[in-house]
Amino acid sequence: MARQLNMDTLRQNFWKEEYLREKMSRCEWHRKYSSMVKLKQKAKASARLPLKLPTLHPQAPLSPPPAPKAVPSRGPSPVVKAPIQAEMNPVLPATRALLYEGISHDFQGRYQYLNTRKLDLPEKRYVFPITTNFTYGWQLGPPVKQELVSCKMCRIESFFRKNGAFDFLDPRDLAL
């Protein structure tokens, strides 16, 4: 803002009153609304704090109900255990033995184990696709080698213009 050179007493008093009026309006606003502002600030600060959940202590397992004694049992029935659901299939013993042969620094041990394990198809390593990325390559089978077509008219060398970047467009470069 440019400095005004024609400041007389009347203009000085005007600016003095404006400054005092603004100062009083700020003090009045602070007196009215400061308590609400502080409450909002406290609410925002408490929302940012991590939520602490109460700790749950393990409870004693409930005792199974007593079996009725009136029915005679035929014999000890084998207890059927639920199979442990694992994400990966078990590793072959020959592949697992690679872990214990040599060290990774000499391209043996863990290095050789991981390279051997990497060669297996995902369907052989995992029971089911774990992530969505697995679905792209799941059960595709071995890769099929495709032969290149020897026709030069069918093959596109690159996606750049054949006649330079700043030259007029060639009708063959346009996609219609």
Rank of each mutant, 00 (worst) to 15 (best):
P72R: 05
S73D: 10
S73E: 12
S73N: 05
R74W: 04
R74N: 09
G75N: 02
P76T: 04
V79Y: 10
V79G: 04
V79N: 06
V80W: 09
V80G: 06
K81G: 11
K81S: 14
K81Y: 15
A82H: 15
P83F: 12
I84L: 15
I84G: 11
A86D: 15
A86K: 14
E87S: 12
M88E: 15
M88T: 15
N89E: 15
N89K: 14
N89S: 13
N89F: 10
P90N: 12
V91E: 14
V91S: 10
L92Y: 06
L92V: 03
A94Q: 06
A94H: 03
T95K: 00
T95C: 00
R96W: 07
A97H: 01
L98R: 01
Y100A: 07
E101Y: 00
I103R: 04
I103E: 09
D106Y: 00
F107H: 02
F107Y: 03
Q108R: 04
R110N: 02
Y111P: 00
Q112S: 08
Q112N: 09
Y113G: 02
Y113A: 07
Y113I: 01
L114F: 08
N115S: 01
T116W: 01
R117C: 07
K118Y: 10
K118L: 11
L119Y: 03
L119E: 15
L121G: 11
L121Y: 13
E123M: 04
K124R: 13
K124A: 14
V127H: 14
F128K: 12
P129G: 08
N133D: 15
N133L: 10
N133Y: 06
N133I: 07
F134A: 13
F134L: 03
F134I: 01
T135V: 07
T135A: 03
G137R: 04
W138E: 06
Q139D: 13
Q139H: 05
Q139C: 08
L140V: 06
G141F: 02
P142F: 03
P142D: 13
P143I: 09
P143F: 04
V144A: 06
Q146T: 10
Q146V: 12
E147P: 13
E147Y: 01
L148A: 04
L148Q: 05
L148H: 02
V149M: 00
V149R: 00
V149W: 00
V149C: 07
C151V: 03
C151R: 00
M153K: 02
M153N: 05
R155E: 09
R155I: 12
I156Q: 08
I156V: 11
I156A: 01
I156H: 01
S158H: 13
S158R: 05
S158P: 13
F159W: 09
F159E: 15
F159Y: 09
F159K: 09
F160T: 12
R161H: 08
K162W: 05
K162I: 11
N163H: 09
G164F: 08
G164V: 11
A165S: 10
A165M: 11
F168R: 11
F168C: 13
F168G: 14
L169D: 15
L169R: 08
D170H: 09
D170W: 02
D170E: 10
P171W: 04
R172C: 04
R172S: 09
D173Q: 08
L174C: 11
A175S: 05
L176W: 03
L176Q: 06
